[in-house]
Amino acid sequence: QVALSRTQVCGILREELFQGDAFHQSDTHIFIIMGASGDLAKKKIYPTIWWLFRDGLLPENTFIVGYARSRLTVADIRKQSEPFFKATPEEKLKLEDFFARNSYVAGQYDDAASYQRLNSHMNALHLGSQANRLFYLALPPTVYEAVTKNIHESCMSQIGWNRIIVEKPFGRDLQSSDRLSNHISSLFREDQIYRIDHYLGKEMVQNLMVLRFANRIFGPIWNRDNIACVILTFKEPFGTEGRGGYFDEFGIIRDVMQNHLLQMLCLVAMEKPASTNSDDVRDEKVKVLKCISEVQANNVVLGQYVGNPDGEGEATKGYLDDPTVPRGSTTATFAAVVLYVENERWDGVPFILRCGKALNERKAEVRLQFHDVAGDIFHQQCKRNELVIRVQPNEAVYTKMMTKKPGMFFNPEESELDLTYGNRYKNVKLPDAYERLILDVFCGSQMHFVRSDELREAWRIFTPLLHQIELEKPKPIPYIYGSRGPTEADELMKRVGFQYEGTYKWVNPHKL
């Protein structure tokens, strides 16, 4: 086992960053958080920038500027975001240094004079007029057009580079997404736009490419001749908990499936790229999406959770019991969808996408189930092999396979070949997804960000279904809070070829 401390991990990262040409360590950078008073800024962006600063992973002359409508001070920003920093008493001095680099400007999102004030403020910072500028839009999409237009007109660096990070949702359907994309691309070049999907920053999602293309053993079996089906799962054990009003506007397909799960599907299904260059990788992902037809209604199961009468606390409440959810809402909190990649490698292999709230566990994984062994000599005792990439929690890679049961006879039983990170790298604290992705933006690497043509294809696949749901308002199937979801989803999976045995229990190697 390799035991690495946080300091050692960050030392390795620093070495990698400083050796590259793309990370300008000594240049002045300004990180501007648009929507600095909001939840995302408070819980994710400010803490992430602090962790990067604490670990010495930001360029040395980096300033952080918050911008929002609320009249706040840096002290206010500190008060609301610091509880999420997880700072230790030993880091007190470092924390003071961090907040000394912070400033805040209040202004409207659609007022040109406010942006001119913001620009004057940035120019007044040390070497601010020639600094590289990175704008993070932690804002609702309704203000994107006004904000990007004003940034472009008043706040661009004339000497350094300018980059803009856009948070999902990128529209509600193909038409609104196209409108937003066309607007942003009329102001910024594609190499300046970073559409963030934080799932692409997760260690195991990034590991998929290495697993596939750096190991000879997987190449020959990664196709329709050997793989019976692919299941991509995202499960949350909690409901909307008072935030249903926002969720109800989008629903589970827009929230998770059309982005996170579809991105994971691309990494499983794509061909080997010409290189690890950002556009070479994204070219292959677009090719996969172009091979997927629009979702067919007979390959869809929609569910909505109801309270568990035997549960406790939140578990007793259904989705419609959330006071922020519109009365009688038919918005799905669970969806199972089957897609097919219609190309030579994957023809006929079902890709089953499942996601839901208020389920029995927290889990995100990719599961490849292989065909049955031909010419069975073990009297149907063999179960199908599976390769599982567990994204969260407890990152893991393992192969479910058959071995001989101890004893006199040739009785096979299920076991696993474990390729888990935790076994080799004991207690290594890896940077989280937002840390990686923000560092990628500083480096100018777009590999783990969504390109406009990729986004367009993703919406093309799901828009007809979303429009049909909005028009017909089908009643989702009720499922109990804390269950596996509607049984109809299991029946759909069985119908397209997935075999669920229920006889195997994964042993978490992190707890051995």
Results as ranks from 00 to 15, higher is better:
Ile253Phe: 06
Ile253Gln: 05
Arg254Ile: 02
Arg254His: 03
Arg254Glu: 00
Val256Asn: 05
Gln258His: 02
Gln258Met: 00
Gln258Glu: 08
Gln258Ala: 07
His260Ile: 02
His260Met: 03
Leu262Gln: 08
Leu262Gly: 07
Leu262Lys: 05
Gln263Arg: 00
Met264Ser: 04
Leu265Gly: 04
Cys266Asn: 08
Val268Thr: 11
Ala269Asn: 02
Met270Thr: 06
Glu271Val: 04
Glu271Tyr: 05
Lys272Thr: 05
Lys272Ala: 09
Lys272Pro: 09
Pro273Ile: 03
Pro273Gln: 01
Pro273Met: 05
Ala274His: 12
Ala274Asp: 11
Ala274Pro: 14
Asn277Leu: 13
Asn277Lys: 13
Asn277Phe: 11
Ser278Gln: 10
Asp279Arg: 13
Asp280Cys: 11
Asp280Ile: 12
Val281Glu: 04
Val281Trp: 01
Val281Arg: 00
Arg282Trp: 03
Glu284Asp: 07
Glu284Lys: 09
Val286Ile: 05
Val288Gly: 05
Leu289Trp: 00
Leu289Asp: 02
Leu289Tyr: 06
Lys290Pro: 05
Cys291Trp: 07
Cys291Glu: 12
Ile292Gly: 05
Ser293Lys: 15
Val295Ile: 12
Asn298Phe: 09
Asn298Asp: 15
Asn298Ile: 11
Asn298Arg: 14
Asn299Phe: 08
Val300Glu: 05
Val300Gly: 09
Val301Phe: 04
Leu302Val: 09
Leu302Pro: 03
Leu302Cys: 08
Tyr305Trp: 06
Tyr305Thr: 00
Val306Met: 14
Gly307Leu: 06
Gly307Ile: 00
Gly307Cys: 10
Pro309Lys: 15
Gly311Val: 09
Gly311Ala: 10
Gly313Thr: 12
Gly313Phe: 11
Gly313Glu: 11
Gly313Ile: 11
Glu314Cys: 11
Thr316Met: 13
Thr316Asp: 08
Leu320Cys: 08
Leu320Arg: 09
Asp321Met: 10
Pro323Met: 15
Pro323Val: 13
Gly328Phe: 12
Ala332Pro: 13
Thr333Gln: 03
Phe334Glu: 01
Phe334Asp: 04
Ala335Cys: 12
Ala336Gly: 09
Val338Ser: 11
Val338Asp: 06
Leu339Asn: 04
Tyr340Ile: 08
Tyr340Cys: 08
Tyr340Met: 14
Val341Pro: 05
Glu342His: 14
Glu342Gln: 15
Glu342Lys: 15
Glu344Trp: 07
Glu344Asn: 08
Arg345Ser: 12
Arg345Pro: 06
Asp347Trp: 08
Gly348Leu: 00
Gly348Lys: 11
Val349Leu: 02
Val349Tyr: 03
Pro350Gly: 01
Pro350Asp: 00
Phe351Ile: 08
Phe351Gln: 00
Ile352Asp: 02
Ile352Glu: 00
Arg354Ala: 01
Arg354Gly: 03
Cys355Arg: 00
Cys355Asp: 03
Gly356Thr: 00
Lys357Ser: 02
Lys357Ile: 05
Lys357Met: 01
Ala358His: 02
Asn360Pro: 06
Asn360Met: 01
Glu361Trp: 00
Arg362Thr: 10
Glu365Gln: 06
Val366Phe: 08
Leu368Pro: 01
Gln369Asp: 02
Phe370Lys: 03
His371Lys: 15
His371Gln: 11
Asp372Leu: 01
Ala374Trp: 07
Gly375Lys: 09
Asp376Thr: 08
Asp376Ile: 06
Ile377Asp: 08
Ile377Gln: 07
Phe378His: 05
Phe378Asn: 05
His379Gly: 11
His379Lys: 13
His379Met: 09
His379Tyr: 13
Cys382Asp: 10
Cys382Ile: 13
Lys383Trp: 10
Arg384Ile: 02
Arg384Lys: 11
Arg384Asn: 07
Arg384Gln: 08
Asn385Gly: 07
Glu386Tyr: 00
Leu387Ala: 07
Val388Asp: 01
Arg390Met: 07
Arg390Pro: 02
Arg390Glu: 07
Val391Cys: 03
Gln392Arg: 00
Gln392Ala: 08
Pro393Gly: 11
Glu395Phe: 00
Ala396His: 04
Tyr398Thr: 01
Lys400Leu: 03
Met401Ala: 12
Met402Ala: 11
Met402His: 09
Met402Val: 10
Lys404Trp: 01
Lys404Cys: 01
Lys404Ala: 03
Lys405Ala: 14
Lys405Gly: 07
Lys405Ser: 13
Pro406Cys: 14
Pro406Phe: 04
Gly407Pro: 03
Met408Pro: 06
Met408Tyr: 15
Asn411Asp: 13
Asn411Arg: 08
Asn411Gly: 15
Pro412Ile: 10
Pro412His: 09
Glu413Trp: 12
Glu413Asp: 15
Glu413Lys: 11
Glu413Gln: 13
Glu414His: 09
Glu416Met: 02
Leu417Asp: 04
Leu417Met: 15
Leu417Trp: 00
Leu419Ala: 06
Leu419Asp: 01
Thr420Gln: 09
Tyr421Pro: 01
Tyr421Gly: 00
Gly422Met: 14
Gly422Trp: 08
Gly422Tyr: 14
Asn423His: 12
Asn423Phe: 10
Asn423Glu: 15
Arg424Asn: 05
Tyr425Val: 06
Lys426Leu: 10
Asn427Phe: 09
Val428Ala: 14
Lys429Thr: 15
Lys429Ala: 14
Leu430Ser: 11
Leu430Gly: 04
Leu430Ile: 07
Pro431Thr: 08
Pro431Arg: 06
Pro431Ile: 07
Asp432Phe: 09
Ala433Gln: 00
Glu435Lys: 10
Glu435Ser: 10
Glu435Asp: 08
Arg436Leu: 05
Arg436Asp: 03
Ile438His: 01
Leu439Phe: 11
Asp440Gln: 09
Val441Asn: 00
Phe442Leu: 07
Phe442Glu: 03
Ser445Asp: 13
Gln446Thr: 08
Gln446Pro: 04
Met447Pro: 06
His448Asn: 12
His448Ser: 12
Val450Thr: 09
Val450Cys: 04
Val450Asn: 03
Val450Asp: 03
Glu454Leu: 06
Leu455Ile: 00
Arg456Ser: 13
Arg456Trp: 07
Glu457Asn: 13
Ala458Tyr: 02
Ala458Thr: 00
Trp459Cys: 03
Trp459Asp: 01
Trp459Val: 01
Thr463Ile: 01
Pro464Phe: 08
Leu465His: 08
His467Leu: 10
His467Ser: 11
Gln468Asn: 15
Ile469His: 10
Ile469Lys: 06
Glu470Gly: 11
Glu470Pro: 05
Leu471Trp: 12
Glu472Ala: 15
Glu472Lys: 12
Glu472Cys: 11
Pro474Thr: 14
Pro474Trp: 10
Lys475Val: 12
Pro476Ser: 07
Pro476Gln: 03
Pro478Gly: 11
Pro478Met: 08
Tyr479His: 00
Tyr479Leu: 03
Gly482Pro: 03
Arg484Lys: 04
Gly485Trp: 02
Thr487Arg: 14
Glu488Ser: 14
Asp490Ile: 08
Asp490Gln: 07
Leu492Asp: 00
Leu492Ser: 00
Met493Arg: 07
Met493Ser: 14
Lys494Leu: 12
Lys494Cys: 14
Arg495Met: 11
Phe498Tyr: 15
Phe498Trp: 12
Phe498Met: 15
Gln499Leu: 11
Tyr500Ser: 06
Glu501Ala: 09
Glu501Met: 10
Gly502Trp: 07
Lys505Gln: 14
Lys505Met: 09
Lys505Pro: 06
Lys505Glu: 13
Trp506Glu: 05
